[in-house]
């Protein structure tokens, strides 16, 4: 890469601050995965449809494959690596485990990062709202039923409150 075209950015990811020199065209997903080695965020389509790369940008879910890393300079990102604390699963992760809401697990980080702000904003969501919230994340293994079940349990147990 040509150095004169690179731009320095500083980003907070899961509470840690990173400063890197990057090409403007670097996708946020590639930045997280290959520059910061946070490979929990997966990439499935690179055109903003599958949702596997969903992360939180200043607390809201976005698709990291259709944002340039340079754009988030000075902002804060949360990824799946930030959910579990001291090896204890986040309650939503635990419910995914209990309800068998994952098979190959490739799409799972994207689902989790979509659901964290969804439950925060919709702590009493019903099934229809849950399914609609999930519709921007594609899963090819589970057929969604157990994911929906896990989110319903999360609502019942007050994960979002």
């Amino acid at each position: 890469m040509h150095d004169e075209t690179k731009v320095q950015i500083t980003v907070s990811v899961n509470g840690e601050t990173y400063t890197r020199l990057i090409e403007p065209r670097l996708l946020l997903s590639d930045f997280l995965r290959h520059e910061l080695k946070l490979t929990g965020t997966n990439v499935g389509c690179e055109h903003g449809v599958c949702g596997a790369c969903t992360v939180l940008l200043d607390g809201e879910s976005v698709r990291s494959c259709i944002i340039f890393a340079v754009q988030v300079d000075g902002q804060s990102i949360e990824t799946v690596e930030g959910l579990a604390k001291n090896d204890t699963l986040h309650p939503l992760q635990e419910l995914f485990h209990q309800e068998h809401a994952l098979q190959c697990g490739f799409c799972t980080p994207g689902f989790l990062m979509t659901l964290v702000p969804f439950l925060r904003d919709n702590p009493t969501a019903d099934e229809a709202a849950i399914r609609q919230a999930l519709s921007g994340n594609l899963c090819r293994c589970t057929g969604y039923a157990n994911i929906v079940a896990a989110v319903k349990k999360a609502v019942e147990s007050g994960v979002g409150r």
Partner: peptide, 12 residues
């Protein structure tokens, strides 16, 4: 419940 879930859920 599955043995493989922890790594998949945490991004590890």
């Amino acid at each position: 419940r599955r043995n493989e879930d922890y790594d998949l859920l945490t991004g590890r």
